[in-house]
Amino acid sequence: MPQVEMVDIYIMGKKYSVPESLTIMDAMEFAGYQLKRGCGCRAGFCGACGTVYRIAGDYELKVGLACQTKVEADMYLAQIPFFPAVKGVYDLDELTPTAASLARYYPEIYRCIGCNSCTNVCPQDLNVMQYVAYAQRGDIARCASESFDCVMCGLCASRCPAHIAQYFVGILARRLHGKHVLPRADHVQQRYEEIEAGTFDAELDDLMNKDIEELKSLYNNRDIE
């Protein structure tokens, strides 16, 4: 019978032997942790589990989401479950989709020295430095699109020598884009007005009062787009 492959990993410097098939998150639990910080969705969507690690003998510092990264032999790791960057507080209605809006809350974007550390650490493989460049230029559409898959784990900010909080720049750009750049959906506005005017009330009341058999027959014979 095949044996489970075990590897040694070092959680904050302390050695544990864990099955090599586990993710970093599962390996921490295998080692006996009950996670409080550093664990949210367990599926790569929430950014709670940013982790830095180094493999013994390698100088390079690597990062990953603990829930989406497999352990490796001789991995030295620590989680960074929180990063103290400051979020701007704004009223979206008052802002325009311009570089000036971004710079008002995040002036550090102009201090980017082009080191690309943010892009290198992004566990989502986003081109972070590129979206900061778009932000500098006021290209809100591209900044929003390029940063769209951001899980806001904060690892980029933790490595930035210019103290930029890239992930906060990204969400401001996306909200500016969604609100002020993308054209509004006319059909949504129209339906909203119809609902306010009570256009569907009678029909809905009627449906509410139908018995199950009637509903069933309507449902089973409904046309499908």
């Binding site: 979206l92 909200r175 884009h177 054209p183 509004r184 959906a185 949504v188």
Partner: peptide, 9 residues
């Protein structure tokens, strides 16, 4: 939409 959610459009 008012809050700036980026729906596919």
């Amino acid at each position: 939409e008012d809050l700036g959610t980026m729906f596919d459009k």
